[in-house]
Amino acid sequence: MEFLFQTILNGLMTSSFYALIAVGLSLVFGVMHIVNFAHGEFYMLGAYTVWILFAKLQWPFFLAVAAAIVLVGLLGLISERLIFRQAHGQVLSGFIMSVGLVFILQVAVVKIWGLGKMKPVPAAFPEILNLGGVSTSWQRFIVIPVTILLLGALWVFLDRFRIGRALRASALNPDAAALQGISPKKCAAVAMLLGSAMAGAAGALMAPIMSVHPYMGHSVVWTAFVVVIVGGPGNIKGSIYAALLFGFLTTVITTWIDSTVADLVNALVMLFLLALRPEGVMGHD
């Protein structure tokens, strides 16, 4: 019984993390048709921001996280202006451009902060949290409420604001934004800002838990892609469901076997689902 609760708790934490990463990616893909491979690097930069501000400059943790969200969001905005806008919605060009951006950001980080040893980020909340017999550290737990908060805020934005509605409409149908009277360019900029900010938030939250290094975005971004595909690209609700599915799948398999097998099973599950329903498993039908 305790084991079950522990698994559920771990599963929820993993799912929250996946959802935070994948929803941003899905939004960017839906609105801009960019398979943004540099999303993982945005996540990495979020973690670096926390390392600098929180671990080195001793800022309060949440202030550092907020700063990471803002900074990475702005970086996303800049990269949209300079690079992704030139892809003109072509999936292939956008993807390859983001690959180029990955190379650039990784080398920049290596050059500025060095490759050497990992960047230690102490836990901001080292206390142990006890929940009905199962325990985890507050630091790990915090990802769940923060994710719910951020996704809630995103939902309010997409639902209550005109530009948010335009964004949501254009994620499902590219021409729809124009109908709402908002230029696709503006939509793209906002999507990129929000999407990158969420990647930054994920990186910032995970910095004390994960090891912070220049290549940390790699494996994360692929899991996020798997989640987005299964959820149906551009479908935010679908991404959240898929994040739950893969979050629990990963947790269970990692507990029982190991994380490599978990990655393997994730990939195979996605391929299997694609073979059954190529147009996206929870796609908008």
Partner: peptide, 25 residues
């Protein structure tokens, strides 16, 4: 078999996952 049925975004990710599952093995 699954890959040939996907296009665009899904093909990138699915083909990567297919290749990566080999590497994981």
């Amino acid at each position: 078999y699954p890959l040939a049925r996907t296009t665009g975004f899904a093909f990138f990710v699915a083909s990567f996952a297919a290749g990566d599952s080999l590497r994981l093995c």
